[in-house]
Structures are given as structure tokens and as C-alpha cells.
Amino acid sequence: MHTENKDEMRDKILEAALKRFSQFGAGKTTMNEIADDIRCSKASLYYYFPDKNGLHAAVLDKVGELYFKGLEEAVANMTSASVALRDLIDIRQNFVKKFCRLELFKLLKNSPPAHFEQKMNEVKVKEAALIEKMLEKGVKDGEFEEMNTVQVAELYNQVMIGLRFSALQGIPHLGEPTQDEFEIIIEKQKQLAQIFIKGISKR
């Protein structure tokens, strides 16, 4: 089997798994169902993914690519750094709504600790780098005050991440936050972004 065909088959499996996970959740999806969807044998499926955990990890990587593709497009097309910072929150919100049934948090938590930590760090670093580009544009265009964009981007990202946890204090829930709880987080993040943008904008 040629490498190109292998890559195409792997992508086909991931697309089928992502569709299944989005509709029914990862926990309720079996390898047999995915194999049936793409009309291949279960043995063929296990050739590419030896177990369900491996498939979960690959789907998470695929979803991460889609998420950052959206962020990168926002950065590439931004006309205002302030607007781009606000759009970042909306992109995250739309992403969660689209993939909420994937049980992303559960998948990550069920992955090996080293993998979970690695993925969380990758997200944090990539998000901070994109925020830094937004700040750099704001400074260059005279929209923002002069600043150390690396430090400010890291601080902003850390505070936003912190809100994802602190905003739900006092709200009992188990596992992945519900859609209503995500709405609370997003609203808090939008309030913080407004205060932050006002603080760094040129008077």
C-alpha cells in the first residue's frame, strides 16, 4: 500500500471517528461502528490505530488542528488587534459548541498523564504565540501602548485559562463543564478582555 493511500485511509478513519464522536460521544462509539461507516474491516482499523485510546489521541490532534486553523485565520485577517482579541473568545466558544459532544475533557483526562500534560502545554504555548501576534499588530498600528508583547501575551493567556476554572467555583458539576457552564466562562472572559483591552489601549 502506497504511503499516500495509507495517509488517505487514516484521514478517512479520523473523519468517520470525528463524525461519530460529535454525534454520539466518544464513550458510546465502538470501533466496529467506525469500521462499518467506512466499510472496512475491524482488522484494517486496528492496523492504523492499535486501540481506542490511540484513536482518541489522533482525533484530539485533528480537532486541535481545526481549532488553531481558525485562530490563525483570525490573526492573518485581522484589521484591528482589539477586535481580534475579542474574536479569539468567540472562536473558542463556537469551537466548544461544535465539538461539545466529543467529550474532549474526558478524553484528555483518560489519556496517559504525560500525554494530557503535553497537550495542555501545546495549547497554552500556541495560544500565547497567537495572542502575541495580535498585541504586536496593536502596538505597530498605534492601537496599543508600547509593551513587552511576549510577557503580556503570556499573562493574558494565563488569566484566561485561570477563568476557565475559577468562574465555576460554587457550581457543582462532574467531569466536563456543561454548555451553560461554558457560557458562564465565556461571559467572564469577554468582561476580562474588555478591561484588558482598555488598559493597554492608547488614550
Rank of each mutant, 00 (worst) to 15 (best):
63 V>L: 15
80 S>N: 11
87 D>C: 01
184 I>P: 01
165 F>K: 06
121 N>L: 12
175 G>V: 13
52 K>A: 13
83 V>C: 04
108 L>W: 04
7 D>F: 03
125 V>Q: 14
110 N>M: 12
69 K>F: 12
186 I>V: 15
170 G>C: 09
41 S>M: 09
62 K>T: 12
135 L>W: 06
147 M>E: 04
127 E>W: 02
116 F>Y: 05
37 D>R: 01
18 L>W: 03
169 Q>P: 00
33 E>R: 11
104 L>Y: 08
17 A>I: 09
51 D>N: 15
166 S>M: 11
144 F>D: 06
36 D>Q: 14
38 I>L: 03
92 R>Q: 14
192 L>C: 02
120 M>K: 10
2 H>L: 08
145 E>K: 15
48 Y>M: 05
7 D>G: 00
150 V>W: 03
34 I>D: 12
168 L>K: 13
161 I>P: 00
171 I>G: 02
151 Q>E: 13
80 S>H: 12
191 Q>V: 12
76 A>C: 02
141 D>A: 11
199 G>E: 15
96 V>F: 05
98 K>H: 08
4 E>P: 01
105 F>C: 07
66 L>T: 12
36 D>A: 15
181 E>G: 05
187 E>I: 02
122 E>H: 03
197 I>F: 07
148 N>Q: 03
199 G>V: 08
121 N>R: 09
25 G>T: 13
56 H>P: 00
82 S>C: 08
58 A>H: 06
40 C>F: 04
175 G>I: 06
90 D>A: 08
119 K>Q: 14
145 E>A: 09
32 N>I: 10
89 I>S: 07
88 L>E: 11
5 N>A: 07
73 E>N: 14
148 N>I: 07
113 P>S: 09
119 K>P: 00
148 N>D: 15
183 E>F: 02
193 A>R: 08
111 S>Y: 05
11 D>K: 12
12 K>M: 10
2 H>A: 13
117 E>P: 01
102 L>K: 00
32 N>D: 13
99 F>Q: 07
57 A>F: 09
130 L>T: 05
25 G>S: 07
129 A>G: 05
96 V>M: 13
44 S>L: 10
2 H>V: 09
31 M>N: 02
57 A>R: 11
144 F>V: 05
193 A>F: 01
150 V>A: 14
122 E>F: 03
32 N>Q: 08
15 E>I: 06
56 H>K: 07
